[in-house]
Design a protein around this nucleic acid. Structure first.
Lengths: 120, 120
DNA sequence: ATAATATATGAACAATCATTCATATGAGGA
DNA sequence: TCCTCATATGAATGATTGTTCATATATTAT
């Protein structure tokens, strides 16, 4: 039972079994590609991008971010949870307030490359 | 009428008007941040990521990609349209077949940085 | 213990999205 | 022209998602 049985065929790829082999070899595992997509989904919302940009300047508490972006504390908190789950931000508690900050440098690089692409 | 009227306030940010000023200065325009989010949404789907990975090896026609990924021609074609609209891939026609390929190097960098982040 | 403040979270709803199915377009061959 | 192959696309549908609202948790002060 090949799960590709019901998929259309064309002839071009059969004639290039070397490429077919290289592709199937270099394509990462399905689970990794799924995780990668999940990561980029996080960048796929302008509220979350704004939060990341704001954290470029300085660590900040939830209420500050909400105020800066003109959004409710709840909406920001929900988004911070997603950013936290993806390990894009980290936090530290100081009394009642929780300060969030960027977790590593990949965020800047990824957003920067995105900006570069748009600028072209 | 300040549209922030209904937003909660906290005190910490008032005491750091320098940071507030820097953030509002460095934060790109809303429209750009929106476009940036739209771009990353494209990377936020494992089918599209697979297509991009496959195109790392070589240009390929729609049917080849569908066959390689075990998906229907229609599903792939719809996704190729989105990738095309975001200028992540380009195409050339040769008779009946249309060959797709990567548009520029940002794709590799962005996916690479995403992988790096996952690996940490 | 009670109140006040900062943050987190569950449920609900509207909006967005990926895939499927059916069908259309376009190009080459008989 | 008619048929076939490769690709594109519109409509429908089930699934996912961002925000809101109400409420819960956690910490500090009185």
């Amino acid at each position: 039972m090949d799960r590709n049985d019901d998929i259309e065929r064309c002839e071009s790829i059969q004639t290039h079994s070397d490429i077919l082999e290289k592709v199937t070899q270099d394509l990462p595992e399905d689970e990794i590609l799924y995780d990668l997509a999940e990561l980029f989904k996080i960048f796929g919302d302008s509220t979350r991008i704004k939060i990341l940009y704001v954290l470029f300047e300085s660590e900040m508490c939830v209420c500050d971010i909400a105020q800066l972006l003109g959004m409710t504390q709840s909406a920001i908190s929900h988004q911070l949870r997603l950013l936290k789950q993806s390990k894009l931000i980290k936090y530290r508690r100081e009394g009642k307030t929780v300060f969030y900050s960027l977790a590593d440098g990949h965020v800047r690089t990824i957003l920067g490359q995105g900006m570069d692409h748009l600028a072209e």
